[in-house]
Amino acid sequence: MSLLSVRGLSTEFRTERGVVKAVDDVSFDLAAGETLAIVGESGSGKSVTAMSILRLIPDPPGKISAGEVVFDGRDLLKLSDEEIRAIRGDRIAMIFQEPMSSLNPSLTVGLQIAEPINLHRKTPWAAAMDMAVELLERVRMSDARSRVKAYPHQFSGGMRQRAMIAMALACQPQLIIADEPTTALDVTVQAQILALLKEVTRAANSALILITHDLGVVARYADRVCVMYGGRIVEAGPAREIYARPRHPYTIGLMASVPRLDQEAGSRLVPIEGSPPNLANLPPGCAFAPRCRRAVDICRSERPPLVKSAPDHLSACHFHAQLSAPVGSHVGT
């Protein structure tokens, strides 16, 4: 039984350049305790997918145009505004890239952590504040008892992100969605925060959706992966399977284009030529066709559906069956 089942999710934005299909027919499942990484380039639809799940899409200009988001047996897209508000921050928590934009600068950190506990759980303020201290201790903030009285600007970037995690954990959510939670942080702090996030979700058996563009982060923390390109999922499956036997030319290309610390340096990288697609003006067939070295006529006319290419492994490429060669070191497309 999956905790979250996203089916055919589509979200559009009306812009002066026309209708942008930011998320187009996206489906995936997530079980309790699992970490799913959504990986893709800037503008591929990762954040819009996350915000659609929580119904945080600004309307206008945005609109969830199709699909269902079944969470714990209920379709979130059919809930009233009040019902979805009761779920946000309680059953599903979200952590954003820039903690400063989601923290209130004029309230103490402790008050902000205690608020959802008071709001959703009706816990009296004094008890909720005690829980805030405990939560800060759980995210290994030193001096938690005095730090609850501090304001966000008195924290470093890493401490703010710890506070955000404490806030997310406050009501013991079943699902945490973290959208590039460490992109703004230094590498050593990034490693601390991601390890912490992984540890606390594992301890609570919560599911985690980790949005990132970093293939290394995916490899270290994710159980499953969805690769997005041009608003669609182009490949999905268990992380080990995707890295060992990628079955989409975009994924294969990405892996060949990043330098790795554990490989011979000095060889030339194999880049993906061209640039990411313009969502307002997608080509009719496969969105990756203009950059794909394997593209043939059918790719430019027919959109490849996301199909099962191997057990528990989906690919949206007309030629997925021919792409099963294992990736040893750098493999070009």
Binding site: V187, T188, A191, D214, A219, R220, A222
Partner: peptide, 8 residues
């Protein structure tokens, strides 16, 4: 601190 893009 740098993760290597390979789960294995």
């Amino acid at each position: 601190a740098i993760p290597i893009p390979d789960p294995e």
